[in-house]
Amino acid sequence: MFRHMWIFLHKLASPPHFYGLAAKMIPWFYVSGLLLIAYGTIAGLFYAPADYQQGDAFRIIYVHVPAAYLSMMAYSIMAISAGIGLIWRMKLAHAVAAAAAPLGAWFTFLALATGSIWGRPMWGTWWEWGDPRLTSELIMLFLYFGYMSLRAAIDETSKADKASAVLILVGAVNVPIIHFSVEWWSSLHQGPTLVREGGPAIETAMLYPLLGMILGFTLFFGALLLARVRAEVLHRERRSRWVRNLILGESA
C-alpha cells in the first residue's frame, strides 16, 4: 500500500505524467466547483434567511469568507511547496508555488474588496487604518505582489525559484497572524464564525450555502491551479524531448 503511494507520488512528480493527468482532471474540478458555487450563490442570495442584526447585508459572507479562506489557503500551498522545493529540490513544487501566486493575489483582492463593501454599511467605514485583521490581510496582498515581481526580476528559473521560496517562507508568519489577529488584538472585525470552540455559530439554513461556496471555491481554485501549473511545466520543460514530441507530434 505504502509502496503504491510512493510510486504514484513519483509518477505525479514527473512532468509529462503530471501534464497529461492534470489535463484530464481540470474539467472535473471546474464542473464540480461551478455547480457548488451556483448552489451556494442561489441558496445564499434567495433561500437563506436574512440575519437578525445585519439583514440582507450579511449575504456578502458568501463571497467574502470563501475568498478570504482561499487567500490564506493559496499562501499555505505556496509556502509548503516552496519548502518542499528547497529541501528536496523538487522542480514541480517550485512550479506549483509560482502558479499559485497570481491566484492567491486575486482572491486576496476579492476578500479585501468585499470586506470593504461589507464594512461600509455595517461598521460605518470602507476601511479602518491600523486594524490588525485588515492590515495583515493587506500585507498578504503585498507579499503576493512582492513574490511575483521578485520572480519576474530573475531570468534564471532555478535562481528565481530559490530566492522567491525564501521570501514566501519568511512571509508565512503572516498567515497565523491573520487568523488570530481578531483574538490577539482589539479589532473591528468579529471573531471566527466557523472554526471555533463549540462549533459554527451560524444557523443551518445559512451555513449550508456557505459550506457549498467554500468547497466550490476550493475545487474551482484546484482547476485554476492545475491549469497554471501545466503552463508553468510546459515552459520549464521547453527544451525536453517529451515537450517536443507533444507539440510537433500533434501538429505533424
Binding site: 450563490t41 463571497v63 482572491f107 474588496a113
Partner: peptide, 22 residues
Amino acid sequence: MGKYGAYVWSSFGLMFIVMIAC
C-alpha cells in the same frame, strides 16, 4: 436585498469578474 442591494450585488458581481479573469 432590503436596502443593501448595491452592496450585495456588487460583491457577487466582483466575484464573477474575478472568476472570469482567473
